[in-house]
Amino acid sequence: MSAKTLTTADADTDEPSGDAWKVTFEGPRAQIHAALLAHEDAPDWDSEIVIAGSEIADDRPDDWQLEAWLSHPPAAHDLAAMRALFDGDAPTETIEHLPPTDWVTLSQAGIEPIREGPFYVHTPDHPALNAPGVRDFVIPASLAFGTGQHATTAGCLAMLAMMKRRGVVVRNLVDIGTGTGLLAFAALHLWPRARALASDIDAVCGPVVARNADANGVRLGDGGGRLAMVIAAGMDHPLIEASAPYDLLIANILAGPLVELAPAFASAVTPGGHVLLSGLLTTQEPAVRAAYARAGLRLAARMTRGDWSILWLRRRRFGGGRSRATVPSDWSRRW
């Protein structure tokens, strides 16, 4: 799968587009994220210029790029508008001419189906497996992260299946940073009577999750066997707080926010409850595990996928109490 992407606009077409040009700026994640936020507040932004931010590579989570697409060669005023997003400190840009391309087909290219435990995840370009004991999920490539191909998402699917095999019972679950909704869907398949809640910091994920739920027969709404969706940073939403405590909390986000949210996550799960974490590199695992040990959770199982760690933690059955969730000042997803 390509790098996780945070986008601010999307083009949907059934026909190949004409020639296009791409302008790319590379910089630290915080700098690119700040530029994307500046774009959202730019009142006179040319709607013909589509921009997106993404990781440059999966093993370089702090190195990002901002890309801008135009249907014409970028003029001086176009480049000036892009540079202005960086508040006077714009990285040197590169400009690339792109030939006519069917962007919809291209967006699906290279995304092969995956099989993890009882789950088979594929894009609409591939048929369902339709095999006994296998749950097919069709997840189109989209603005939201989580088609299953990234090691963190696939690892979470495998860990959820392990939890089920080991007898974990889930009646109430939450998926923080849900992206496409895939992990919440998978959890509901394993525990079909559970009440489920999904959240994401990016508003684009709301309609994405709704479309994917409809395509996969996942019922939306409140109550057992249904999935509710909210837009929130971390745990900062009244419904997330009111629906706690949870038997299972899933968070496939970033190591930094995982560390800062450890107390809030721990207080939001039941004594003996389960937390599934991913989005952290193996080099970041000691810091994450230490934060959750201080919050009263112990390691139940771990697995690695390439450079990434997937952690299953359990809250101790004694001590601790619910506290109001706090949001890290720099909380953001990787897309």
Rank of each mutant, 00 (worst) to 15 (best):
L248V: 08
G306C: 09
D19H: 07
A154V: 05
A68E: 02
S323W: 06
A215V: 02
P271W: 14
D200N: 07
L258Q: 10
W64V: 05
A141S: 14
V204I: 14
A268R: 09
R324T: 15
L183I: 06
P238Y: 11
V204P: 00
A109M: 13
N212V: 09
L188N: 08
G319R: 06
V138L: 04
T153E: 11
V170P: 00
G88Y: 00
N212R: 05
W191I: 06
D247E: 08
V23W: 04
A228G: 13
A76W: 00
L190F: 07
D12V: 15
G224I: 02
G27N: 04
S199I: 11
R302M: 12
R315W: 04
W69I: 13
S332K: 12
P140G: 10
V269F: 06
M159R: 01
D10H: 04
V204E: 08
A38Q: 06
V104A: 15
I310V: 15
D89F: 12
H33F: 14
D102K: 06
D87W: 00
A264S: 15
L183T: 05
R322K: 07
A264H: 02
V208C: 09
F185T: 09
T283R: 14
G321N: 08
T270Y: 02
A196H: 05
A213D: 10
R195T: 15
V170Q: 07
R317V: 14
F318C: 07
G234H: 07
L106P: 00
S47L: 15
A81Y: 01
G217S: 10
G177L: 09
H72K: 08
A290Y: 06
P99E: 05
T24E: 00
R166A: 14
W21Y: 09
E116P: 00
N252V: 08
P238H: 12
D19L: 05
G53L: 08
L85K: 07
S323G: 15
G321D: 09
V269M: 05
A262H: 06
G279H: 11
V168Y: 03
D136Y: 09
L197A: 08
P328L: 03
V288A: 07
W64D: 05
W335T: 07
D102S: 02
G148Q: 08
V138I: 13
P113E: 04
A187W: 05
G273C: 12
T270N: 08
A301N: 13
D102G: 01
L220N: 03
G88P: 03
Y120N: 10
S243I: 05
I139H: 01
V269Y: 04
A161Y: 02
P16W: 03
P263C: 04
H274Q: 14
S71V: 13
E15L: 13
P118V: 08
P43K: 11
W103S: 05
W69S: 08
P124T: 12
I32Y: 03
L311C: 14
R314Y: 00
I201C: 13
A203V: 12
T7Q: 11
G18R: 02
L281E: 03
L249G: 06
A84D: 06
P257L: 06
N172Y: 11
G146M: 04
I240K: 03
A52R: 13
R322I: 07
V327C: 15
L239T: 15
E116G: 00
I95N: 02
A228P: 05
D62S: 14
G27A: 15
